[in-house]
């Protein structure tokens, strides 16, 4: 378990089309590794905790860049950086929820190279797993975090199935709230998956965090016009205000008419392996005034079913409080 910090000897492909990239990815399957901004990649590789044979660098694929307006909203190329998301007028004016979420990812340096696709596809940050231990998520047969003395402060409150890691993505919950569609290509055909279904929990697939299969590439993210210019609320609470993962985050989109919530989407981050849709809250606030009273009335619903571990009980009041803020509309 000695530590390393230089890149291992491995192959590098730099395709310029999605078709070529998918073909290479298909050829190498689990032995290949797609890399965009590389912010989740290089740590794995330099630590020798993951050992793919080849890197498939997607940065040369121009078609995966840029933010475009479509008939029903916008399409964000997979390689759009998080910094670009925070600055693009289409995003900041219509979908400020996403801009805010992207602006809270890591640090400016990381946001400058980290991509939207990478942020939603990144692996979990459980320290045991990242250490390279052969836990369930790494294909092993046990979890080191979920034990009577495990150090699991950052881990899951909900829906843990053997693995108790949480989604580290800040933009993932925002995209689920915005009912984004994830465009996935295998080189010859495309499938479009709702953001909510894009993420998978350990109960379904313990070694992956998304529905992406070997040979598939997330090429774009589409956001429908439905939630454009809605009322949004985003907040991420982390130990540090820069370069840190969320302890809990909240992303909310609401249609409010005359102070009454007509429809909403509320999603929490860092409380389970996937962005957690808070549908009980959404139902409970429908038709109610967006105010403190409503917030106080419904917030506790957010933590029903929580199963805290040794050190993460605090996430329950934190989630409840963030839901309260999102409903009332201010910190």
């Amino acid at each position: 378990m000695s530590s390393h910090d230089v890149m291992p000897d491995m192959g590098l492909y730099q395709p310029v089309t999605v078709e070529d990239a998918a073909g290479i990815a298909r050829q190498y399957s689990e032995r290949g590794w797609l890399v965009g901004g590389g912010q989740d990649t290089y740590g794995w590789l330099k630590d020798r905790a993951k050992r793919p044979e080849v890197l498939i660098d997607l940065k040369g694929i121009e078609s995966m860049r840029g933010i475009r307006e479509t008939a029903d909203g916008i399409e964000i190329g997979a390689l759009v950086t998080l910094t670009e998301l925070t600055r693009d007028p289409l995003i900041t004016e219509r979908y400020s929820l996403l801009a805010e979420a992207a602006g809270r990812v890591a640090s400016p340096q990381i946001r400058n190279v980290g991509t939207i696709a990478g942020n939603v596809s990144q692996d979990v940050r459980c320290w045991y797993y990242r250490r390279g231990l052969n836990c369930y998520r790494a294909g092993g047969n046990l979890c080191y975090a979920d034990t009577p003395e495990g150090m699991n402060r950052e881990h899951a409150l909900f829906n843990a199935s053997r693995c108790v890691a949480v989604t580290p993505s800040d933009t993932g919950p925002a995209l689920v709230a915005l009912e984004a569609q994830m465009v996935i290509s295998n080189g010859s055909s495309e499938r479009v998956v709702a953001a909510e279904d894009f993420f998978v929990g350990p109960n379904v697939d313990i070694t992956h965090t998304t529905v992406l299969r070997p040979g598939e590439i997330l090429t774009a993210v589409r956001i429908p016009a439905k939630w454009a210019n809605a009322e949004f609320y985003f907040e991420k609470v982390a130990d540090r205000n820069v370069w840190d993962f969320a302890l809990v985050s909240i992303s909310a989109a609401m249609r409010v008419n005359n102070g009454v919530i007509e429809e909403s989407r509320m999603v929490a981050g860092a409380v389970e392996a996937t962005p957690r849709r808070l549908d009980r809250i959404e139902q409970a606030i429908r038709g109610k005034a967006r105010n403190q009273e409503t917030a106080d009335e419904v917030a506790a619903l957010a933590i029903q079913g929580a199963r805290p571990l040794n050190y993460n009980h605090f996430k329950m009041p934190l989630l409840e409080n963030l839901v309260n803020r999102a409903v009332r509309g201010h910190a």
């Binding site: 130990d239 009980h313 605090f314 329950m316």
Partner: peptide, 12 residues
């Protein structure tokens, strides 16, 4: 840390 402060406030 924030977790300790939250636990204290929540008196949990």
């Amino acid at each position: 840390t924030p977790d300790m402060i939250l636990n204290q406030i929540a008196q949990n």
